[in-house]
Every structure is written in C-alpha cells, then in structure tokens.
Nucleic acid binder design. Structure first.
Lengths: 133, 133
DNA sequence: TCGAAGCGTAACCTAAGAAGTTACGAGATG
DNA sequence: CATCTCGTAACTTCTTAGGTTACGCTTCGA
C-alpha cells in the first residue's frame, strides 16, 4: 500500500461492511482482505470509531461493524474522520515579512475555502449510493 | 522551515522581487533572507524558471529576476509551477474490488474537480495585487 | 586571458511521517 | 478459566523533503 492508504483501507472496509451490515468482522479478516496488517487496520478503523462511523466489540467473537446504515455514511464523514486536511493547519511560521505574510494568508484562505466545498461535495455521496451502481 | 516550505520560499522570493524588479538577486542572498540554503533556493526557483516565471543568469554578476511583471504573475502560476497537487496522481493500486474502486473513483473525481476551482481562484490574485494592500 | 562569481546538479546526510511488525494487557464470551 | 479480540506501546523499515558539500560550466571584469 502506498499513499492515501488510510483512505483506501477505510473505503475498502466500509464497502464490504455495507454488503452485510450485520456481520462482525475481525481486524485479522479485514487485514487479510486488504493485504495489510491487523494492527494497521485497528489504527485506521479506530479513527472511524472515534468519529462514530464504526463500532468495535472486544473479547471473544468480537470485531467491527457499522455504527449506522450505509445510507447515512457519506464520503465526507470518512474524509473528516481520517483528518485528511489539504491545508497545513500549522502556521507556526509567521513570516517576518508582511508582504510574504499577505501572500501566504491569501493562499491559505483560498485553500480552506476550497476544502470546505470539497467536504460539502463529498457529503453528497453515501457508501450506499456507490454500491447501487 | 517545515511543510509547504517550497511554497513559502517561492512567495517570499517573488514578493521581494516584486518590490525591485530590475535588481538581480543571487541564490545566496535569497537563502540568507529566507533562512535556508542556496542549493535549496536554486532547486525551488528552478521550478519557477521552468514555468517561465523567473529568469536565472549564470556567471559573474548573475542571479535571479522576474521573467515578467508582478501584475502578470498569479498565485495559480506559482502553485502550478511547484506541482503542488492535492490528488495523488498515482492510481497504480487499482483496487481489486469493484465497489471500493467506485468509491475511490468518486473521491478522486471530486478532488480533481475541486482542485480545478482552487487553481482558478488562485489565478484571480497576482503578486502585485497583494503588495498594494 | 584568467580568476572569481554564479548557476546547475549530483551525492550524501538527517529528520519526520507512515506503514509494517511484534508483543502484551484488558475485556468478553463460552 | 481458556481463548479470542481489541487497544496500544515499542520497534523497525521505507519514503520524502530539506540541508549540506562538492564540482563542473558559464560569464563578467580586471
């Protein structure tokens, strides 16, 4: 797996779960399907759990399942849960020079604005939408 | 310097050059201002040169200057020259599973679309614009 | 004409981030 | 109680970008 592998893994898992929402899947199973490691799966899906998209159950016969129906999980939910931000949130480096600062502010402002529209548009598609085609 | 430092360095340099377009600046000078290394400066500005934004002159009393007036250099020109792409262009990993593939396609499509509007909006601001404020 | 000043580039080192791996504790079930 | 599974820590690569050194090529000026 390469870049954006978290997103790929998340979408992979969600799309499979959408096909059989009642079944619990273990991280080992998911990892085998995705060609990666159970720990990596738990890391990535952990973020989706924190975002309220998935539920994990510990102990014997535990595993992972959707926290709500696929019709109510959008691509934006996934994107936001993974904290994939376009804009480098850290602006620790306040440029000393005011003109450079103004330029950078401008770029940052536009990027943040554009990211809002990205999330908005991703919010228009649900996991279930894509399955139906 | 941290993340997006190429962009920061490019904007820094361009904003200074816009103030005195006739003066040639050496990479050593620019590096000193920006708190980095001449080689790094030549790397980054090299991209702007390839994009036709800057001109570099070799030899004694050589250096860097704008290839055209600051009114005709937009933030989009800089962004594109640095090849800052939001979308991971490499889709080498064709997902085996068709549903996952459809989901990923959808995300990629939206991101590419959004990036177009980003470039369009960055194109509305020139280096000179920001200086005037 | 020759030396110094610049750029262009290669090669290497280092730092940071992400994935892969191993290991182990905690909780739940049968 | 034995076993299964998640949650996490710790460690090891691997990749990417920046920083650094070095050197060849070009150009100006004394």
């Amino acid at each position: 797996m390469k870049r954006n592998s978290r997103l790929a893994l998340a979408l992979h898992t969600l799309s499979h779960m959408a096909g059989d929402p009642n079944r619990l899947q273990t991280s080992a199973e998911i990892a085998a399907h995705a060609g990666t490691n159970p720990v990596v799966v738990r890391r990535v899906l952990g973020r989706l759990r924190e975002a309220g998209l998935l539920i994990s159950e510990k102990g014997h016969s535990g595993g992972w399942r959707l926290a709500r129906s696929p019709q109510h999980i959008t691509l934006a939910d996934v994107y936001v849960a993974l904290e994939e931000s376009l804009v480098a949130s850290e602006e620790a480096e306040a440029p000393s020079c005011s003109v450079e600062h103004a330029l950078f502010e401008r770029v940052t402002h536009v990027m943040k604005d554009v990211e809002k529209s990205l999330v908005q548009r991703l919010g228009e598609t649900t996991i279930a939408d894509v399955r139906e085609r």
